[in-house]
Design a protein around this nucleic acid. Structure first.
Lengths: 125, 125
DNA sequence: ATATTAATAGTAATAATTCCTATTACTATT
DNA sequence: AATAGTAATAGGAATTATTACTATTAATAT
């Protein structure tokens, strides 16, 4: 795969946010520095970056998002505001336990916590 | 909400399969008994059945599927054939453990196992 | 039985994503 | 440095999934 300025910019934009943006959001951002870029190029490169393991595609219900954080981690989804936040299950043995419970060959365990984020709580812990 | 023959048939079709069908699959099935039904009716009723808690909408990557099994359970996704299979994490304390680990108010823990299903193994356990 | 009005069929509209093709621009080789 | 080969892009058309709109149909209360 040869060098592409567009792909570099898309990658930089993703790595500069924790907000798990959609393709459209990335598109509007890249346009600021490359006004001529097309949405197809954004989609194509996001797919390639995912294929390269540089980013990770995440499916937030029916919404497709992109995450620079390609380390194994999980997500917390807020029912109220829709925010999707990275979380780390400190005890990774949880996943190993789950893996062992099945006859299937389990490579990965994806966990999403659903709830309400601190923003909506009157009193924080 | 008043009675609708269409909704009843949609419900029966869902309850007769374990395959987590898409709206389109349901549409093609209902057509066999109600040829005049429209796709919009299928979508509307699937949404209502979900709202009533009679079925559950599940997001399998970018694909929206419907599941009659509204009991808490999780899924196994096969990388090879794309099959999505219901699984029960027998030890429900796993989820409680996870809930306790976070400051957020966690209502639910969704777990998806990713791997290869038995169909593709030369020798089964 | 009839009136009321929610639900439907059929179609148009929207949104997200992929596909297609002529043009552009990397890169290896002179 | 110029050129040839070809991968990547821009722009737009096409596709797919889903929702919205509206005239008609049918469930239910009276």
């Amino acid at each position: 795969m040869r060098f592409s300025h567009q792909r570099e910019v898309i990658k930089e934009i993703l790595y500069a946010t924790n907000s798990h943006p959609t393709a459209d959001w990335v598109f509007s951002k890249v346009r600021m520095s490359i006004p001529s870029i097309s949405l197809g190029t954004v989609y194509r490169n996001l797919k390639q970056l995912d294929y390269l393991g540089v980013i990770k595609t995440i499916y937030d219900g029916p919404i497709t998002r992109y995450d620079w954080n390609n380390e194994p981690h999980d997500h917390f989804k807020c029912k109220k505001c829709g925010a999707l936040v990275d979380v780390a299950l400190s005890d990774s043995s949880i996943k190993e336990n789950i893996k062992d419970k099945f006859n299937f060959k389990v490579d990965d365990v994806e966990i999403t916590l659903i709830g309400t984020c601190n923003k909506h709580l009157k009193i924080n812990k």
